[in-house]
Nucleic acid binder design. Structure first.
Length: 198
DNA sequence: ATTTTCAAT
């Protein structure tokens, strides 16, 4: 059989990968990032489906080879060469919120790409590194929308970024305490973004 | 109730 088209990074993830990594009560040691792009025209937004997909961080026993999901995503965005004469909204669903360093890189991107609006929905708050709160605030100050994923976003991702094989209409299975946890995290994020953590 | 944090022996 002739070789088919080179399978680019698959644009749909396995069900179990999604459920394991986006569960907002778990603490997986990896990060997945789903993204979609829309063109903003007046009051309307037009999906740009060729720029839709997901990626994950790159891990390695060698520190210098490890990459967080965000720099990989920034590289991917750069490769799109989005028309600077047009306006776009990029929505990101990320399983861990950006660390301070990645937040800074995203802020830099936003300063250099004023035609792009960025929305970030995070499943969980990545509070491992000192300064994570400031990083999130910097993103907001740079014009990014930062929010926790709610049931709506989890379901949206399930429908749009997950491979359901033959069963296209498979409903989002949810998990215990998804909503309660999401609300807790949203409260906490609100405090962080107001500079009143805890 | 609280626990795992973009790993690596």
């Amino acid at each position: 059989m002739a070789a088919g088209p080179a399978p680019e990074a698959r644009s749909l993830m396995d069900e179990q990968t999604f459920l394991d990594n986006f569960n907002n009560l778990k603490y997986p040691r990896k990060t997945y990032l789903c993204y979609k792009v829309e063109r903003l025209v007046g009051e309307n937004s037009i999906p740009v489906d060729e720029y839709k997909g997901f990626l994950r961080n790159e891990s390695s026993p060698r520190r210098w080879e490890r990459r967080h999901a965000e720099p990989i995503f920034l590289e991917r965005m750069a490769s799109w060469n989005l028309d600077t004469e047009l306006r776009y909204r990029i929505t990101v669903f990320i399983s861990w919120s950006p660390c301070p360093e990645c937040a800074d890189e995203l802020v830099k991107f936003l300063r250099e790409n004023r035609h792009v609006k960025l929305r970030i929905f995070a499943a969980r708050i990545y509070d491992w590194y000192q300064g994570y709160e400031a990083g999130l605030r910097a993103l907001k100050a740079a014009g990014a929308e930062v929010a926790m994923m709610t049931f709506q976003e989890f379901e949206y991702c399930w429908k749009n970024f997950v491979d359901h094989q033959q069963d296209e209409d498979k409903p989002f299975p949810s998990w215990d305490n998804l909503v309660v946890r999401s609300e807790e995290l949203s409260q906490r994020l609100a405090g962080i973004l107001q500079n009143r953590e805890e």
